[in-house]
Design a protein around this nucleic acid. Structure first.
Lengths: 151, 151
DNA sequence: CCCCTTGTTTTGAACGAGTCAAATCAAGGG
DNA sequence: CCCTTGATTTGACTCGTTCAAAACAAGGGG
């Protein structure tokens, strides 16, 4: 349904505007998009949209819990619509691709550090670093080539 | 021993210079310092030290494995000398204080996401978010005051 | 249906953290 | 003591993001 976002926005106490619907559309199509990707994508529907507006929309969505911001080290922030389940992420060191992971084993094993040093912990954020299938495949090919085989 | 760092640097194939020793000193005293703190601290020993030099030193230390860089979301990067054990961190949402945590339960439970979506994972990074003892205490005091009690 | 209020968007400038590049300098082997 | 090469310095610059003021429009009240 097309008007689902309209309802979600109003339920959250936000006005329904074109920039917001465009951003939500882009996020549906790109589940882990950075601000720049969102600006570019949203301009398909709203060509005059400015980056600042997108930042404003994203902040509004995050603050009412319709979107979540993730910030992998060394990369611009990413936004996703999957909220409320505190899932984690796989990040490719080579191409930056991101995939979702449900919390590792059972409920929330990572929420139990052995010694919290007096901290009251409310969230455990986990990032798995590695290579995505494609980049890992390329790395393997290259080492083969280096090894001698060609073509 | 004062010359320990001298040996470590040489072992790593790095020249021993004043900026490097100063940075290492500051990191010993501040186990989770950001670049700015390091610049300020190191200037006690080397007043003309520039930020760019510190960035250079830090990059050198990280690249040879004498230091580790951590990047909590929404804050400047921090550097620490505790390396080689892939421990994790507690971060205070209020004041930014950081404490070390040994990996949660047993060996490395977090290194086993249920479904890796084709990724080859080489590291699991865990950040526990919450409030440190001091900030949690202040928050409690304030809600008490709001609730009615005083003094 | 129009007006008014208030939240949004727009415009444009500014910021902090970090990077890049060329020139100078000094560590430490010969 | 000199020379090579890596390290530091200087300065400009980039990127992602935030700030502020003015123009605008969503949508409730009359």
């Amino acid at each position: 349904m097309e008007t689902t976002w309209t309802h979600r926005l109003r339920e959250a106490g936000l006005r329904v505007t074109r920039p917001r619907l465009s951003v939500l559309d882009v996020l549906s199509a790109h589940p882990h998009a950075d601000a720049d990707t969102i600006v570019t994508g949203a301009r398909a529907q709203h060509p005059t949209l400015s980056p600042q507006t997108v930042y404003g929309v994203l902040e509004a969505l995050v603050s009412v819990g319709l979107a979540r911001r993730i910030e992998p080290a060394g990369a611009p922030a990413l936004f996703e619509l999957r909220v409320g389940d505190n899932h984690h992420h796989l990040v490719c060191r080579s191409c930056g691709a991101v995939a979702d992971v449900d919390c590792a084993v059972g409920a929330a094993p990572c929420l139990s550090p052995s010694d919290t040093a007096g901290f009251v912990v409310d969230e455990a954020e986990v990032v798995f670093w590695g290579l995505c299938r494609r980049c890992h495949g390329q790395a393997a090919e290259e080492s083969e080539t280096v090894g001698g085989a060609s073509t």
